[in-house]
Amino acid sequence: MIDVHEKLSMAQALNRALRDAMADDPSVVLFGEDVGALGGVFRITDGLTAEFGEARCFDTPLAESGIVGMAVGMAMNGMRPIVEMQFDAFAYPAFEQIVSHVAKMRNRTRGRVSLPMVIRVPYAGGIGGVEHHCDSSEAYYAHTPGLHVVAPATPADAYALLREAIAAPDPVVFLEPKKLYWSKEEIEFPVRAPGIGTAVVRRAGTDATLIAYGPSVPVALEAAEVAASEGRSLQVVDLRSIVPFDDETVCAAVRSTGRAVVVAESAGFAGVAAEIAARVTERCFTSLAAPIRRVAGFDIPYPPPKLEHFQLPGVDRVLDAVDDLQWEQ
């Protein structure tokens, strides 16, 4: 196969992944609210009904519990459904289905029934969305055993991880950072990328490690860039998948620097960042020169657009946390 290079936005990369998966596997079907003629409110499913027909990509009545519940049944009967939740906060009516059935089916049937399905969720903030349009819901899903939880930070990863999520034998909650939908990158096809469950080091550095996922990765990279200009070398790890969690890569990275800051948009209390800080501390305590710091969202409902910038972890907050890592004078 000849390599093809194309510059794609994350939205286009996701669209391409859906198209390629549907072309490769006739059991892949896609449905949700406005995913047909409209192509989804973010246009991630643009053109798929036209290309594959109504039976493969279709609009449903407006009911998230129904959408996810129907996907469960279709997955039980030989199909690979992909469903779109229109926004993170509009997935909550499906929470019962996700927690009680999607996550538990394999376990309760002793492995006899598996659910190869993907729940795509436009996710997190930074787009000036009005109330209920910018939630960070990863902790709910990550806390639910039985779900894989994936959050890409680059267009190439969006493509690769979504293809893998669709092919996976287990259900995947696929979190698409809304603010990165329009970020662009040169992608080399076929995409070669590590699988779900593998973190990558996005930037090498020797003084401290920034651990981020999804929308926080560009923030961490920017912070590392600024730190470099101030003489501090920061390494950046992109988790790519929250569940399964790549302890090995993350811990190796932290051991190499001895200091770490976790950056995440969602509320810090009982969040994914807390889990990361705890498990890395348990595993790397003797290598740590300072307690691991978290830079997370405040423990408040997601604020309205005019106040959003106070909530989002920014470069300054990340660098302040790095400054706090007990540096020798």
């Binding site: 609210e33 003629a37 409209l38 407006l62």
Partner: peptide
């Protein structure tokens, strides 16, 4: 309509 979805697809 519900965004793009006509009533005939709703009920």
């Amino acid at each position: 309509y519900a965004i793009s979805v006509p009533l005939s697809r709703q009920s």
